[in-house]
Amino acid sequence: MRVIARLWLVPVVVLLWELVTRLSDSGFFPPPSVIAVTMREMWLTGPASQLWLTDLVLENFPPSLARLFAGWALAGVAGIALGIMIGRSRALSRFVDPLIHFGRAIPPPMLLPFFIAVLSLGAQTQLATIVFGVIWPVLLNTIDGARAVDRQHIETARVFRLSRSQRLWRVILPSALPKIFAGLRLSLSLALILMVISELVASTSGIGYQLLRAQRDFDLPAVWGTIVLLGVLGYLLNSVFLAAERRVLSWHRAAKQTT
């Protein structure tokens, strides 16, 4: 019931979209029914041995998703590690703060030519673009979370003389985790965007590359199909991430409700 209550707007919008596009009859805006048929033809008409997925899917989706997750994971690990260091050291944070805000202000697509020049074309360039683009939310949130660890928690750790690793893994990291997750979630949606952008320029495979090709062929239903796919992908990624967050941070939600 709750799913229905939440999703009732989707068919309404699709229906409206169908009506408007059919009435306007513009070649740039194919109706959703046409888009759906195109999506099926493009991706779901393969042999049964491939679970009906076409070669197009098998050639383009896995590399895209691999870049997306690899870039996000790398940025996540680096952002959390750096963020904890910077957040727990006032000297370091004063020193690198300007650098962070300088780096954050650069739009990652602008760096693509630079990455291509340095790393040449290929997966490493796309990875570098994604990592550079999505590290900021994790980094800034982790710095914030590590800085905001309750003073009494730190003092308790000192009084009971917890080891450095205990302080890190059992006190600082869990305490910063709600903020870190907020950053990771933002980064995930950014990673999807940057995956597409990097594939538009520096790639010969992937969902973004497919989008580019469809665009060049003026195959508008295919363009729209890819856009829909990206939207669905973003929605799914976010849902899975939220479910994971709910599990990991159950203590946080419950503790906030009771105190």
């Binding site: 009494q152 308790t156 009971f160 205990q166 059992r170």
Partner: peptide, 28 residues
Amino acid sequence: LAVVFQDYSRSLFPWMSVADNVSLPLRR
């Protein structure tokens, strides 16, 4: 030396069970 602070809610770690809170300092 051990300390019992006034503000228990900020001295116990909310992400650990009661048993873990008590046993955490014992590793040393």
